[in-house]
């Protein structure tokens, strides 16, 4: 039975070419420093999964956001663990993505033929920071509220456009229910979609060019 199913699927998908194209590829000798990119992706997936669980109970309104988080922490079975992983995963993701970028910089892996991979990588880094920035407001506690207040204030100092950016971010001159609503939308739909698309491109390029080798005196 299993064999028939496998054969049927293989005919349509082609496991062999998948295997040779994706898995059985030659790579130069890699070190532990080369694992940071996949670690970033793992963290993104983990954030996605825990984030989906959190949205089941989370309510993005100033009246209920704080209480819904308290309920996740106290009332939901293993809610504290899911939120704990999401909370610390965010911190770790920023850190891992940043160190990944430093490694690529110091080994000059961004040079020909991987320039485009670097550009997309910068996009990924900024999207990660954006995830952190928008996610920070969602618990609607003192720390979140005031961090977002100063964060958007800094964006508001841009000459000429400052006022517009500030109002666009906050949805008005002050932090309000609108701010929370649009940060929530950005956090769970807009930025993750951009991030996932960029990640797909990034991965495609990494597979196409292979990982760069560790530079020696020759290079």
């Amino acid at each position: 039975m299993w064999k028939t199913v496998y054969a049927w699927l293989d005919e349509r998908i082609g496991f062999d070419s998948l295997y040779t194209n994706l898995l059985d590829r030659p790579e130069p000798k890699t070190t532990w420093w080369n694992t940071l990119g996949s670690a970033s992706m793992f963290l993104f997936i983990l954030q996605g999964l825990t984030g989906i669980f959190l949205t089941v109970y989370y309510t993005p309104s100033p009246d209920h956001a704080y209480d819904s988080i308290t309920y996740i922490m106290e009332g939901v079975a293993f809610g504290w663990l899911i939120r704990g992983i999401h909370h610390w995963g965010a911190t770790l993701m920023v850190l891992v993505v940043f160190i990944h970028m430093l490694r690529v910089f110091f080994t000059a892996s961004f040079k020909f033929p991987r320039e485009l991979t670097w550009l997309i990588g910068i996009g990924l880094f900024l999207a990660t920071l954006g995830m952190g920035f928008t996610g920070y407001l969602l618990p609607w506690n003192q720390k979140a509220y005031w961090a977002t207040t100063v964060g958007t204030q800094i964006a508001g100092t841009v000459p000429f456009l400052g006022e517009f950016i500030l109002k666009a971010l906050r949805g008005g001159p002050e932090l309000s229910a609108l701010t929370l609503q649009r940060f929530f939308a950005a956090h769970i739909w807009i930025i993750p979609a951009v991030l996932a698309a960029l990640m797909g491109l990034h991965l495609y390029l990494v597979i196409k060019h292979g990982e760069s080798h560790f530079p020696t005196k020759e290079d």
């Binding site: 994706l22 898995l23 059985d24 590829r25 030659p26 790579e27 130069p28 000798k29 890699t30 532990w32 080369n34 694992t35 940071l36 996949s38 670690a39 793992f42 963290l43 983990l46 704990g84 992983i85 610390w88 995963g89 770790l92 891992v96 292979g210 990982e211 080798h213």
Partner: peptide, 26 residues
């Protein structure tokens, strides 16, 4: 590449250990 390794299992193995380590740490 000639004196390197295979993506599967060599490279991927390290990646998986790293991710697992991060998961446990979290």
């Amino acid at each position: 590449l000639g004196k390197g390794e295979r993506f599967w299992p060599d490279t991927l193995f390290k990646d998986l250990i790293m991710s697992l380590g991060i998961f446990v740490l979290l």
